[in-house]
Design a protein around this nucleic acid. Sequence first.
DNA 1: AGGCAGGCTTTTA
DNA 2: TAAAAGCCTGCC
Length: 272
Amino acid sequence: MITVKITDDFDLKKIADSGQCFRWQPIENDGYRVIHGDHCLCIWKAEDDCSYELDCTDDEYNDVWSPYLDMDEDYQSIRTKIDINSDPFLYEACEHECGIRILRQDPWEALISFIISQNRNIPAIKASIEKLCERAGEKRYDGRGEVYYTFPKPEAIAAMSDESLDECKLGYRDKYIRRTAEAVVNGKLDLKAIAALPDDEILPSLMSIYGVGRKVASCMLLFGLHHLDAFPVDVWIKRVLETEYSNDYPFDNYSPYNGVYQQYMFAYYRNK
DNA sequence: AGGCAGGCTTTTA
DNA sequence: TAAAAGCCTGCC
């Protein structure tokens, strides 16, 4: 168990409920259990105002969790760039949702998660992903001795039986998931190669994946490839752009952090 | 070329 | 019953 002092914007609940990740699990004492690749972390807020307790070593924090939590980015600085007079709505959203960060999630997990997310609400998304992990992931135990499952690798999903995949309640998305997994296994889809493309080629490349449209590709770009300027437009954000900005949102002013501001607005508008 | 209608699974409110 | 962090196909 280690204690870490975090002075930048950081709110466990806001991150967990932000809709960017689907496997943060609330645990005892207002903590959360977080799974990332082969690693699992339990984290609690300490009494001290900006300290947290984590059940990992200093090395694991430095190598895995600090990057995952994007601790090298200064969110307070990004958040306070917004001027209350020139954009009162976004200013209010930033204040209200202060504490959200954009996690550096595993690209493969993000891609599959956001394909599953289409046309569904968050509880349903979480249920499908958890079932997928139980059926194709690897069984492990966290620091408290409780079971968790890793997110299944492409090979594991490609090898699932139709029955097993059916049990994940993916609906019409099951064929997207299966084909995407198969494409990675047989080498037709290389996420690392896509990530290495010039910025303007990544979105079209992601959209060529079966089952991936502009929205899911943008989520993958922002949450899976950490392009903080990517701006996913879903039904909520569409309403925001219409009602608050008359479809004339000043993207240029907010580059290269459009995606971060999108997260504040999404959470703010959805919670209202 | 780009836009639109209809269909799609299941869960949630 | 409608809506939910949409996409695909077919048609124009």
